[in-house]
Design a protein around this nucleic acid. Sequence first.
DNA 1: GAATTAATTCGTAATCATTATTATTTACAA
DNA 2: TTGTAAATAATAATGATTACGAATTAATTC
Lengths: 136, 136
Amino acid sequence: MKMETALERLREKGYKRTKQRERMLEIFTNQDQYIAAKDILKTFQEDFPGVSYDTIYRNLYLLTDEEILEATELGGEKHFRLSCDTHGHHHHFICTACGKTKSIEFCPMDKVQDNLQGYDIENHKFEIYGKCPACS
Amino acid sequence: MKMETALERLREKGYKRTKQRERMLEIFTNQDQYIAAKDILKTFQEDFPGVSYDTIYRNLYLLTDEEILEATELGGEKHFRLSCDTHGHHHHFICTACGKTKSIEFCPMDKVQDNLQGYDIENHKFEIYGKCPACS
DNA sequence: GAATTAATTCGTAATCATTATTATTTACAA
DNA sequence: TTGTAAATAATAATGATTACGAATTAATTC
């Protein structure tokens, strides 16, 4: 997703355009990887030495709610990445060494719906972990 | 998995048979659901009022390493369930209301291997979340 | 452009799950 | 039954996340 697309989406919803939000989006731009909240904080502090935890977490969740970011939990910590809106629904291979991801253009949900008659499906997670070619 | 199978597996590896480990396995027996570590602790305290965190976590991880338990992370907390060894590799639907699970006899990995040439796959996660018939 | 106002951020403390540590106890084997 | 390594208890520390009142700021209106 382009930074401008994200900012526009926020504007439409009436959210203010703050330096902090711009910077946060900037950090995610062109990063094909999940980043831990604490690493966002660390990067953030370079430009905003006094940034508060509140700002980091509130905005990460806001951006996730607005589907600008995608969230997942890796090793007990919340990680975030810019949502890919260029293609449809998909999943990711995630490198456990460098954190980089590769899109998997396949969703297993089609294959399992039949076995879940009567179940109210709200969500699903399909992630593959390992080492990318560069790290292995 | 039967409780006796689990105890036997521990014995083979030279682990001691303690009242705490027996009780822990008992808690998981016949529970088709993921249980949070803190809930294990709570149940445990009924029989072992002075049980330490250390005992809980050490044994949960030990049993997971020995493939007696399966672990997953739900809502930022580690959850565990007795491993099903009656049938092969599979995945789970997990009810977000009651925590009960249903086996999904399908693994999407077959479908995606081709797209991951050169990637060293270590692990994967496929979970479906929602409400089971009883809760929906 | 100044005033208004609600949203946002800061500064800091609290919470909560998990991990670590040391002394004590226990299972098991010789 | 005794010795010994393993396991547990009791407690403290850690670290990510959440909470909250005070101060600041973006956007709107005049």
